[in-house]
Computed example of a mutant assay.
Amino acid sequence: MKSEIDPPKPTTVDEYIAAASPLVKEYLVQLRSIIKQTVPQAEECISYEMPAYKLNGILIYFGGFSKHVSLFPGAEAIEAFKDELVDYKTSKGTIRFSLDKPLPITLIKKIIKYREKENLSKLNRKTKKIP
């Protein structure tokens, strides 16, 4: 049962970003812009109550928290970029970016391109199967 004091769940990325604190909002706007510039054909949506981008499946998620923003590219991308991610807190499928440092735009774009290639290769494998 939903409480009367629970904020409404976002249904759009605009709503998600609007609900963030001013500092977090700055980072979220920047992440959104980087993703849209890097993979303009990806479809923006909300999934698991977070902004997500789809291109032949989920490409990437991002989220804002009180002390950081996170990018959720999946475990394979974290492993592929582990040497470049040593300055950031990571877990199985998550990269945390502190709110006291600029976002590593070039690295984020490389990770997004990697995910795009991964998702498109899945599509190519599916279409190459002989019926």
Rank of each mutant, 00 (worst) to 15 (best):
I34Q: 07
I34D: 11
I34N: 11
I35K: 03
I35Y: 08
I35P: 04
K36F: 00
K36A: 14
Q37G: 13
Q37I: 12
T38S: 03
T38E: 06
V39L: 15
V39P: 05
P40N: 01
Q41I: 06
A42N: 15
A42S: 14
A42C: 05
A42D: 03
E43W: 01
E43V: 06
E43K: 15
E44G: 01
C45T: 13
C45L: 15
C45F: 15
I46T: 07
I46Q: 08
I46N: 05
I46D: 09
S47M: 07
S47P: 03
S47K: 05
Y48M: 05
E49W: 04
M50S: 12
M50P: 02
M50N: 12
P51I: 02
P51Y: 03
A52I: 14
Y53N: 02
K54M: 06
K54I: 03
K54S: 14
K54E: 04
L55P: 00
L55R: 00
L55E: 04
L55S: 02
N56E: 10
N56D: 12
G57A: 08
G57F: 06
G57C: 08
G57R: 04
G57I: 00
G57P: 02
I58S: 06
I58Y: 04
L59T: 11
L59E: 08
L59Q: 00
I60S: 03
I60V: 02
F62G: 14
G63T: 02
G63W: 02
G63F: 13
G63H: 05
G64P: 04
G64R: 13
F65Q: 03
F65M: 09
S66N: 10
H68V: 01
H68G: 12
V69I: 12
V69C: 04
V69Y: 07
S70T: 14
L71K: 02
L71I: 13
F72G: 11
F72E: 15
F72N: 01
P73N: 04
G74C: 14
G74W: 12
G74R: 07
E76D: 10
E76F: 08
E76Y: 01
E76P: 15
I78V: 07
I78G: 15
E79L: 10
A80C: 13
A80P: 06
K82V: 08
D83R: 09
E84D: 12
L85R: 09
L85D: 07
V86Q: 15
V86K: 15
V86L: 13
V86A: 04
D87K: 09
D87C: 11
Y88D: 03
K89E: 12
K89L: 10
K89I: 03
T90D: 01
T90A: 09
S91W: 08
K92E: 10
K92D: 01
G93S: 00
T94A: 05
I95M: 09
I95W: 04
R96Y: 06
R96K: 08
R96W: 11
R96Q: 05
R96M: 05
F97Q: 01
S98Y: 07
L99P: 13
K101N: 11
K101D: 09
P102L: 11
P102R: 13
P102A: 15
P102W: 12
